[in-house]
Simulated scan of single mutants.
Amino acid sequence: MATEPSDVRVAAAADLKFALDEAVDVFRAQHPNVKLQVTYGSSGNLYAQLVNHAPFDVFLSADVDYPHRLVREGLASKGDEFVYGVGRIVIWVPRSSSIDVEKLGMQSLLNPAARKIAIANPRHAPYGRAAEAAMKSAGVYEQVKDRLVLGDTVLQAGQFVESGNADIGIISRSHALAPSLRDKGKFWEVPLDAYPRRVQGGVILSWVQSRSAAEALRNFILGEEGRTILRRFGFDSLEE
C-alpha cells in the first residue's frame, strides 16, 4: 500500500468511464495519500500519446494489443502488463425508438428507422473495430456502411444515439449498463462469436512516478472489490 503522498496519472479507455469512476471513489477512500487523475479517450489515441512519452503512469486499454506494443517498444516491462476484464458490445436504441432491437438483433440495423448508426471510429477505437467485425460477420456491413456515424470513442457513439444525432448504435455493454443510460434505452447483446474477443488489459509505464501507488491501483482493479465493480458494469473475467 502506498503510504507517502503520491500521484497516479491514468490514461483509460472511454468504455471504462462509468466502472472506473466508481472504482476510483472506492480506491481513494482506501488510499487517501494517493492522488488519482484519470483521462479518458480512445485507446488508439492514448497509445499514440504514450509512444511520445505522455505524462501518464498507468494505461488501461480497451484491448491487450496496445499494452503489448508498448512493451515491445521498450516503453513498459512485460511484468507490468495485466488483463483486467473482457468487454462486450450491444446494439442500443432509446426507449422511445420504434425499432424492436431485442427481437431483431443485428437485423435492427437494416430497419428503415435506423437512418444513422453510431459506432466508435475503427481506426483508433477497439470497440469500433469490434462493431465493424460484428456487422461483417452478420452480413449487413455493406448495406449499412454509408449510414455509419463515427464517434471518437465508444462513449461518444453512445452519446450520439442518446442525443438523437443517431438512431441506433453499437456501444459497449458497460455504457448500456451505466446509470446514465440504463433506464433510457433498450439493447441486444451481440453474440461473442460475432467479433474478436474483447480482452482488455493495462500496463504500468516505464516512467511511472510512484511505482508503489501505481501497483496499489493495479492490485485494487485486479482484486475482489475491483472485479466486483467491473462485473457489475458488464465486464466478464477472463475465465468466464
Rank of each mutant, 00 (worst) to 15 (best):
M1K: 14
T3Q: 15
D7L: 11
V8P: 00
R9M: 13
R9H: 15
A12V: 10
D15E: 15
D15A: 13
D15F: 02
L16E: 10
F18K: 06
F18H: 08
A19W: 04
A19S: 11
L20N: 07
A23I: 05
D25G: 10
R28V: 07
A29Y: 11
Q30S: 11
N33S: 13
N45H: 15
L46T: 08
V51P: 01
N52A: 14
P55C: 06
D57R: 12
V58H: 02
L60A: 07
D63M: 07
V64L: 07
H68T: 09
L70G: 04
V71G: 10
R72C: 12
E73L: 14
L75M: 15
L75G: 01
S77F: 14
K78T: 11
D80W: 01
D80H: 07
E81F: 03
F82Y: 06
I89W: 02
I89D: 00
I99L: 12
G105Q: 09
Q107P: 00
S108K: 05
N111V: 03
R115N: 11
A125V: 00
A130R: 10
E132I: 12
A134P: 08
M135I: 09
S137A: 13
Q143Y: 14
K145R: 15
V149A: 11
V149F: 08
T153F: 03
G158R: 01
Q159S: 04
F160R: 01
E162S: 09
E162C: 02
S163H: 10
D167F: 02
D167P: 00
I170T: 02
H175V: 01
L177P: 01
L181K: 05
R182H: 08
D183S: 09
G185N: 02
W188P: 00
P191Y: 12
D193S: 15
D193C: 14
D193Y: 13
A194I: 02
P196H: 08
P196Q: 12
Q200F: 00
G201C: 05
L205P: 06
W207P: 08
A214S: 12
A214N: 12
N219T: 08
G223P: 10
E224R: 13
E225T: 12
R231Q: 12
F235Y: 15
D236M: 15
E240F: 05
